[in-house]
Design a protein around this nucleic acid. Structure first.
Length: 352
DNA sequence: GACTCGTGGTC
DNA sequence: TGACCAAGAGT
C-alpha cells in the first residue's frame, strides 16, 4: 500500500531547499513573522505567467526600483511601462498591469484586496494569480494550479488523461492536498518541487519528498506524464516593415493599436502579416521615399506562427512629413524599448 | 473548449 | 534546427 502524499513532508523539504528569489520571503524569515509585500508578490506573479524565473529577475528588479509601490506604478505613463516591459513578451500583461495598479490605487486606496474573489475582479488576475497572491501575500489556504502543479499532480496520481482535459481532476487533487497551515509556503513549495525535482524531463525522483506517495513512480510512468493534446504546427506569415531614418538621425516609429499582437508597443510601420499561401500584402509605405530592400529578412517565431518580415529602409530629408507614425529623435530612441521582433529588424537595418 | 498572445533556453 | 517548454489570462 502506497503512502498518502504528506503536505508536511513537502514543507519540510521546502524549509531546506527553498529557492531564493528577489520577490520571495523565504520560509525562515516567514516563520520570524516577515510578511511579503502584496505589490511585489502580485508583480512577480504577473511577470512569471508563462515566463521563466531567469527572464523575470532583471525586469522585477528594474520595476521595483523604478516603481517601489503600486501607487507609483499607477502614476506612471503608459509608454514608460510598455517600454520597461519590452522584451518580456505577452504584452497584454503590461497593459493589464497598469489597469490593475490604477484600480488598486483609485478604487482600493492603494491596498490590494486580500481575498481570491477580490483579486479575481482585477485586470490581468486570473484563477492562478488570484490564488498565488491570496496564499503567498495573505496566507489564505488557496490552491495554486500552474504548470508545475499540474505535472506534480499528474504524476502523483498517475493520471494519463491529457491536458487540458484533465485540468479539473488535477485541480481537485491539488485542492485535496492543500493544508490550512502555512498555505503561502506550501504554494511556493509545490511549485519549487515542480521546478527543481519533478521537472518535465529527467525528474529527480531520488530526491523527491513525495516519492513514497507517487503513483507514477510506482508504475514507472513519470517520464511520460503529464500527457498533452498534440499541438498544431505553425503556419508561416509574411509582411514588410519600413525603417525610416531622417537625416538628423531620428527614426520613424509608431505605437501599435492597444489590442492584438504586440498591442500598445512601439514598432516600425508596415504592412499586415498574411499567410504565405495568400498573395503578399499590399505595400503600405508610411512616407514618400526611395526604398531600399535589405538582403536579409527578419525572422521571428510567435506563439502560433512564424514570421518572415521583409525590411525596407529609406533616408529622408527634414521637411518630409510621414503619413503614419512619428519621428523619434536619435537621443530619445532606445532599441531596448522595442519588442524583440522590432529590435531584430532594427539590428539588421541600423547604420554601421 | 479553442484561440490568441512572446520570448529565450534547452535538447 | 526545430519543437518543446515556462508561476496563464482574456475572449
Amino acid at each position: 500500500m502506497r503512502e498518502t502524499a504528506d503536505p508536511n513532508a513537502l514543507l519540510s523539504w521546502y524549509d531546506r531547499h527553498a529557492r531564493q528569489m528577489p520577490w520571495r520571503v523565504g520560509p525562515k524569515a516567514r516563520a520570524d513573522g516577515v510578511r511579503p509585500d502584496p505589490y511585489r508578490v502580485w508583480l512577480s506573479e504577473v511577470m512569471l505567467q508563462q515566463t521563466t524565473v531567469a527572464a523575470v529577475k532583471s525586469y522585477f528588479l528594474a520595476f521595483t526600483e523604478r516603481w517601489p509601490r503600486v501607487t507609483d506604478l499607477a502614476a506612471a505613463e503608459d509608454a514608460e511601462v510598455m517600454a520597461a516591459w519590452a522584451g518580456l513578451g505577452y504584452y497584454a500583461r503590461a497593459r493589464n498591469l497598469l489597469k490593475c495598479a490604477r484600480a488598486v490605487a483609485e478604487e482600493h486606496g492603494g491596498v490590494f484586496p486580500d481575498t481570491h474573489a477580490g483579486l479575481m475582479a482585477l485586470p490581468g488576475i486570473g484563477p492562478y494569480t488570484a490564488s498565488a497572491v491570496a496564499a503567498i501575500a495573505f496566507d489564505r489556504p488557496e490552491t495554486v494550479v500552474d504548470g508545475n502543479v499540474e505535472r506534480v499532480m499528474a504524476r502523483l496520481h498517475d493520471e494519463h488523461m491529457p491536458l487540458p482535459q484533465s485540468k479539473k481532476i488535477l485541480t481537485e487533487h491539488a485542492e485535496a492536498l492543500t493544508p490550512t497551515g502555512r498555505p503561502g509556503d506550501y504554494a511556493q513549495a509545490v511549485m519549487d518541487l515542480g521546478a527543481t525535482i519533478c521537472t518535465p524531463r529527467n525528474p529527480a525522483c531520488g530526491l523527491c519528498p513525495w516519492r513514497p506517495a507517487c503513483a507514477a513512480w510506482a508504475a514507472g510512468t513519470q517520464a511520460e506524464l503529464p500527457k498533452k493534446a498534440p499541438k498544431k504546427r505553425k503556419p508561416i506569415r509574411q509582411g514588410t516593415a519600413y525603417l525610416v531614418r531622417r537625416v538628423d538621425g531620428a527614426w520613424l516609429l509608431e505605437t501599435r493599436p492597444e489590442t492584438g499582437l504586440l498591442g500598445g508597443m512601439l514598432g516600425w510601420p508596415g504592412t499586415d502579416w498574411v499567410d504565405t499561401s495568400e498573395p503578399a500584402p499590399a505595400e503600405a509605405p508610411p512616407i514618400r521615399a526611395e526604398w531600399k530592400t535589405l538582403p536579409e529578412e527578419a525572422r521571428h517565431t510567435f506563439t502560433h506562427f512564424h514570421l518572415r518580415l521583409t525590411l525596407k529602409t529609406a533616408l529622408v530629408p527634414m521637411d518630409r512629413a510621414p503619413e503614419r507614425g512619428a519621428f523619434v529623435a536619435a537621443e530619445e530612441f532606445r532599441p531596448a524599448d522595442l519588442p524583440t521582433l522590432m529590435r531584430k529588424a532594427f539590428d539588421l537595418a541600423r547604420p554601421r
